[in-house]
């Protein structure tokens, strides 16, 4: 397997803050690498280093074999970058934005215009092409921004939180476009706070927290790694939620996660299922739903870092089972 992106021990300090603390990662050519982590974990800094925007203080990285510091120009010839904020000129029309980039990339006027029209069509922006970007919706801007990063047909694409703040429909559209690009052979490095997004798009995942890689693997490997399965029980009567939680705690031996309507807990041994049923029956608690399911990436993240990944998640919420200072857990991809 060849790697389109390889980073080794990247360190970057901003004043006294260590944004990257020895990040190593690899993105296989033609696949999507999801870089997962909460706000301030270092995801964007990593992307900025890999996109030649800032130089690392230590460590090194290559894109298609070219060093991001020494051969920055060669790297730039091969990458596309779509940031968290739509980096398009609001005063210009969508078409003007794309033509401008085409011209900068050396396309003669007519070719630049043709490429712009092509991208506008592809991103469902043809009708809005001559309107100023100022008048675009958030979803349209992101699509134009993605289009702008594709003018030069990059073989490596960085998407830095491409769907943050987008409505579910626009998000779905963007995912579709990413899938199409990958089908065309583009390597994608995607940072996101949305675990669902990583689950949908990423072939491989790197989890970053506090500037360090704390886990790597495929989504399934990561889910298997954490407790294997999740027991989920929903009582008939919501008033019995507390008693239900007590039973689950006794049987599984861990503090269950109590939601609004259900109780869940990670389980290693499938035999707990009948045990829980027997105990609930004995206690006379009516069960509306009882299931064993794979952990979601949210639960994986919670277990790995001790806090949730979603925006607004409390960064120093009490760790449920895995303390965050636990040594790095690596799930190796079989090679």
């Amino acid at each position: 397997m060849t790697y389109a992106i390889q980073a080794e021990g990247l360190v970057k300090n901003f004043g006294t803050t260590r944004a990257l603390d020895g990040v190593s990662l690899r993105a296989s050519a033609g696949r999507v690498l999801g870089v997962l982590g909460p706000n301030g974990a270092g995801k964007t800094t990593a992307v900025r280093v890999l996109a030649t925007l800032i130089a690392p203080d230590a460590g090194h990285a290559t894109v298609n074999g070219f060093d991001v510091v020494r051969d920055a120009h060669q790297v730039r010839r091969r990458i596309g970058l779509t940031g968290q904020y739509a980096a398009v000129d609001e005063e210009l029309s969508g078409a003007q934005n794309l033509v401008l980039i085409g011209r900068l990339l050396g396309l003669p006027g007519p070719q630049a215009r043709a490429r712009a029209a092509e991208l506008l069509a592809e991103f469902d922006l043809t009708d809005a092409g001559d309107r100023r970007v100022k008048t675009y919706s958030g979803g349209m801007r992101r699509r134009l921004d993605l289009g702008a990063s594709l003018v030069g047909r990059p073989s490596v694409l960085y998407l830095d939180e491409p769907t943050t703040g987008l409505d579910p429909r626009s998000r779905g559209q963007l995912w579709e476009m990413v899938r199409k690009l990958v089908a065309d052979g583009v390597t994608v490095l995607l940072t996101t706070q949305y675990l669902e997004e990583a689950d949908h798009l990423a072939h491989d995942i790197v989890v970053i927290d506090h500037g360090k890689v704390i886990a790597t693997g495929t989504p399934d490997q990561l889910k298997d790694r954490v407790g294997g399965q999740i027991l989920n029980v929903q009582p008939v009567m919501l008033e019995e939620l507390d008693r239900l939680a007590g039973v689950v705690r006794e049987v599984t031996g861990v503090e269950p996660n109590q939601g609004d309507t259900s109780v869940s807990a990670p389980v290693d041994d499938p035999a707990v299922l009948p045990a829980v049923v027997r105990r609930l029956d004995a206690a006379g608690i009516g069960v509306a739903e009882l299931a064993l399911r794979k952990a979601t990436l949210d639960e994986v993240f919670l277990a790995l870092t001790g806090h949730t990944a979603e925006p607004g998640g409390e960064p120093d919420a009490p760790a449920p089972s895995t303390p965050s200072e636990q040594p790095q857990q690596h799930v190796r991809t079989p090679s």
Binding site: R48, A51, T52, L53, H73, R76, R77, I79, G80, L81, G83, Q84, Y85, A86, A87, V88, D89, E90, I101, L104, L105, A148, S149, G152
Partner: peptide, 16 residues
């Protein structure tokens, strides 16, 4: 707005 970042990620003259 990040437009500079876009320019700087392109294979163009730094000072452009």
């Amino acid at each position: 707005k990040g437009i500079f970042d876009r320019f700087r990620s392109l294979p163009i003259a730094r000072s452009a």
